[in-house]
């Protein structure tokens, strides 16, 4: 018989499953946004995009060896980075298009909102485990210097790269959160973050 869940384990599992739903919805919206973005910007969907400065990569080696804390901290850092990248995209969008394509601007703002909400959700999970949450200030202090002024085409490609990677991250986040929600084989209780691979 499975041991009764401790209240924090039940809360964590609930947060994880809500996070999974958030990430799934975010991914669907990012994919839609990507299609609209490619069309609106006149890009070739298969265009290769050079490395984008400050873009967190979803691909990770030895994913299954990561502890729960590592997963959450990497996710949190990534979505904070995406929040900054999307905010910059939105600013550039307004600068370049003004009122011309409000639809794309709104979709971009909606995804930015979801990314912010997801980042907050990750902080909740870390707080649950009384894990210190890296303050934004700490990150901003030694955060990347403002990117060099890109040409408009480079801005378009960077936007493409950001949205593509964000879609990948949403997939990874779902896997990470599922991993966190898994009960540990021995106790049948979801392990603390530190131990869970």
């Amino acid at each position: 018989m499975a041991a009764a869940d401790s209240p924090s384990a039940a809360l964590r599992r609930d947060l994880c499953s809500r996070g999974i739903r958030l990430a799934g919805k975010m991914r669907a919206d990012v994919v839609d946004l990507l299609d609209a973005y490619v069309e609106q910007q006149g890009l070739d969907a298969s265009a290769s995009v050079a490395a984008v400065e400050g873009l967190p990569l979803a691909a990770v080696e030895r994913w299954d060896e990561q502890t729960g804390t590592q997963r959450l901290l990497e996710n949190l850092a990534a979505y904070r980075a995406f929040r900054a990248l999307l905010a910059q995209m939105l600013e550039e969008q307004r600068e370049q298009l003004g009122e011309a394509d409000a639809g794309l601007g709104r979709a971009l703002a909606a995804v930015l909102l979801q990314v912010s909400a997801f980042a907050y959700h990750l902080e909740e999970l870390l707080r649950l485990e009384s894990r210190g949450i890296p303050g934004e200030e700490e990150e901003e202090e030694d955060g990347p210097p403002p990117p060099p002024r890109l040409s408009l085409f480079e801005q378009k490609l960077r936007g493409l790269g950001v949205l593509r990677e964000l879609a990948q991250w949403a997939v990874r986040s779902v896997r990470d959160l599922r991993q966190l929600a898994k009960p540990s084989p021995a106790t049948g209780v979801a392990p603390g973050l530190a131990e869970s691979p």
Binding site: Q40, Q41, A47, S48, Q96, L97, E154
Partner: peptide, 20 residues
Amino acid sequence: SNSSGTNVVCRLENGLEGSV
């Protein structure tokens, strides 16, 4: 051009260059 401009893309063996 449309609101986001017309892309002029130069495809090279290992990369893209472009202007709008």
